[in-house]
Nucleic acid binder design. Structure first.
Lengths: 239, 239
DNA sequence: CTTATTGTGTGACTAAACTCACTCATGTTG
DNA sequence: CAACATGAGTGAGTTTAGTCACACAATAAG
């Protein structure tokens, strides 16, 4: 992980749950692949029999409906682990995983992982905690997207972005990830135009600012008020 | 489980994941409590260090915002297992668990469960599969609530209800659980009035019917069309 | 059997968010 | 440096869902 001159707000969610020894055990059963930006790791309907670890790069998990409207559920980045293990035979993916920048992705076969957990109780416990954390993140997102209207959804997403891609810059937080208004819209189930207008309002109120398609958070508490943020741990409050 | 003269659509999600032997192991570390309808199993902010098994009864997991609007995330019933294990020290509940009928609830301390998983690899694997299934259910719900408007959210909820509380009656499915329009509204983040009007529309189209506050599904495919249902397994598509 | 209480049904109005149509800015490519 | 593509910004109009205000039905309680 590259060291930054600015202090990092971000934290890697995996390293907080997995001990080094146990993560090494998982690394031993990984198969590495290189994938170019724009390709797909899996499509909706593909068998869901693997976990993935992003050694380098980023992956978006999306879902499209009949009218072509897209919803971005997760944006995974370097160091993230993701995948399904649900024990239903013939389980398939319900979403699509899109590589958004050239990446090195490691696959972990569920079967191999099961064997590992059989043998290493400590790993099983840690893996379970990680799964629990991921589930909690999804639940938190569901709450934020449902309960506080579109402005609340957007603010909660900005807080998540600051936890995932934020670097402190004086009193402000710079979101290092470039995002278009359309992408933000797809993350909260709104339209580009609505997001544009809402960002405008937030800028007018001095809550955020923008510098060449980077968002800068000037008043985190302002955002928190709008989405009734409860200050949940930053490894749960993520994209 | 009482045997019914009508064939059951419902399936218990736990028994499909846990083998009898392993479930017995879990039963050995359970502590039983009786709780009356209207009481609370836990409140938002309480430490989250237990799992729960409903031996008899039902429990709602809800969240309220500042304006008093309530959101019902899950409705658990007899035979269901639920709870959190996320490995964050001092982890607390973000939602409230409300007993909705006189119940017998068994607590499982996370600590005890961890020990058990340490010792029994097969149990650990099954538990993981169960957690994955629960997570998948939450993801499916998030998708349905976000992507297809309020009518879509309602239809997906009716399908979930039929998977959870449905009994086949001729060509129809009767939903055995009594639900008020307000409860349905709180499940999909809508208002009572909107739900009332949407149910009226569905009745007019012959998709559902109502008999003394019980909903009867007459045209499941009609519902499926509205929420672009993909026929996900009925142990994932639940309340 | 009367009276509360709780839930349903409905119309009129308001607010939130989406759609469409277009302009302007920025960045990329031959 | 044109020419094109992509994204931002904005107004006008429409659709969707929420709010408010009641009437009425069903159920429970005294």
């Amino acid at each position: 992980m590259a060291k930054q001159t600015q202090s990092e707000v971000t934290s890697n969610r995996n390293t907080e749950v997995f001990s080094q020894e146990n993560f090494k055990l998982i690394e031993e059963i990984m198969y590495e692949t290189k994938l170019a930006a724009g390709t797909h790791l899996y499509w909706e309907g593909d068998p869901a029999d693997k976990f993935f670890y992003i050694k380098q790069g980023s992956v978006q998990i999306t879902k499209s409906n009949d009218e072509g409207k897209q919803f971005i559920l997760y944006m995974h980045q370097t160091g993230d682990l993701f995948g399904q293990l649900d024990g239903l035979h013939g389980s398939t993916h319900t979403m699509t995983a899109e590589i958004t920048e050239d990446s090195v992705i490691c696959s972990i076969l569920s079967k191999d992982l099961e064997v590992l957990m059989w043998q290493h109780g400590a790993l099983a416990v840690e893996f379970m905690k990680w799964m629990g954390m991921m589930h909690r993140m999804t639940q938190a997102k569901l709450r934020d997207l449902m309960m506080f209207g579109k402005p609340g959804a957007l603010c909660s997403m900005l807080i998540r972005l600051s936890n995932t891609y934020g670097t402190v810059r004086g009193d402000d937080i710079l979101i290092t990830k470039k995002l278009t208004n359309s992408e933000l819209a797809d993350m909260i189930g709104a339209t580009r135009e609505s997001v544009n207008r809402m960002l405008g309002d937030l800028k007018k109120d001095g809550i955020i600012d923008q510098e060449s398609s980077h968002i800068i958070i000037k008043d985190l508490d302002g955002l928190r008020t709008i989405c009734q943020c409860e200050n949940c741990p930053s490894n749960v409050c993520r994209i």
